[in-house]
Design a protein around this nucleic acid. Structure first.
Length: 292
DNA sequence: GGTAGACCTGGACGC
DNA sequence: GCGTCCAGGTCTACC
């Protein structure tokens, strides 16, 4: 079964896939040769479906395996639309940055959207797995988590959806450490999963646009394992761009770009992008570090 | 509010 | 093969 989803123009499927590293993390499967993004989704009724996503005129072509009822089809559309931010509008960002050579490409490349997971729970977990580790370890930990706790696709159990909060909450710290190699992050994920599973923490309401950004940041920082960097990264995914996700890579790039390779601090990184105001994190994320 | 040290894994390196 | 060092953010205790 195929369907096509339309995006607010301008839109580039590849720009979203390449917006950051999420396409490399399970249950995403990026085929760079065919330029198809596979992802195994778990729907609200518990069914697991496999999708293949690719560029279509003005949007995305979604290929689905197996028959789906109307409710399931509608849920797949909602999940894919959220993941690709199909209705996001970046026209004001393009106006604000059109005089900056290092951002001159953003409109032409339809940059601005960032690939998201279907649920904020999944994005919070993945963000925690990016902290204090190397990217290859993040890929490995996420893969282990999906393989160990994700629901399998009927007919192809090798493919699994991202674990539900319940599946992780019903585990224990020792199993998480041993099976997924999460290290000290294991108790963070366990507590988060338990809080979401029992309803104590509702992450999905944080997608609400009416929530002021400082309040949203405060709630994200209340999650164990989420510090300043992780909160800023999650705000970026949620379409809030006024906090910078300053990590070691940001410090290195700002040092090379503006300080001749000399040591810089987080404050220097903040200062470098201060002038972009509400678009700060977006300007940072799509800054053309390679351009001369 | 600022700072130091612990947390944990895996890769790189020297022996 | 083994031991050591290092990179990577967050938390907690302490000042």
């Amino acid at each position: 079964m195929n369907l096509t989803l339309t995006a607010k123009a301008p839109f580039s499927f590849l720009s979203v896939v390449r917006s950051h590293g999420w396409a490399q993390l399970a249950p995403f499967r990026w085929n760079s040769e065919d330029q198809i993004l596979g992802v195994t989704l778990r729907l609200a009724n518990g069914s697991v479906v496999d999708t293949s996503l690719q560029e279509a005129a003005g949007g995305i072509r979604v290929h689905l395996e197996g028959p789906l009822n109307l409710d399931e089809l509608e849920e797949v559309k909602t999940q894919v639309s959220w993941m690709f931010g199909l209705q996001q509008d970046f026209s004001a960002f393009y106006v604000a940055t059109r005089q900056e050579p290092k951002l001159a490409q953003v409109k032409e490349r339809a940059q601005g959207r960032l690939l998201r997971s279907p649920s904020l729970f999944e994005d919070v977990v993945k963000t925690i797995l990016t902290t204090n580790t190397l990217w290859q370890a993040t890929i490995r930990m996420t893969h282990n988590l999906v393989q160990q706790f994700g629901d399998p696709l009927p007919g192809n159990p090798e493919r699994k959806a991202f674990p539900t909060p319940a599946s992780i909450a019903n585990s224990n710290e020792e199993t998480l450490r041993a099976k997924t190699r999460l290290g000290y992050r294991a108790p963070y994920l366990l507590v988060l999963s338990q809080q979401v599973n029992c309803g104590e923490l509702d992450l999905e309401i944080l997608k609400d646009d009416s929530l002021p950004t400082p309040e949203l940041r405060k709630r994200l920082l209340a999650v164990k394992g989420v510090g300043a960097y992780a909160a800023a990264n999650l705000l970026l995914l949620l379409g809030r761009y006024d906090y910078l996700p300053v990590d070691s890579w940001a410090i290195k790039m700002v040092s090379q770009e503006w300080h001749d390779g000399q040591p810089v601090t987080s404050a220097d990184v903040e200062r470098a992008f201060e002038r972009w105001g509400q678009w700060k994190a977006l300007a940072y994320n799509f800054w053309d570090w390679e351009a001369s």
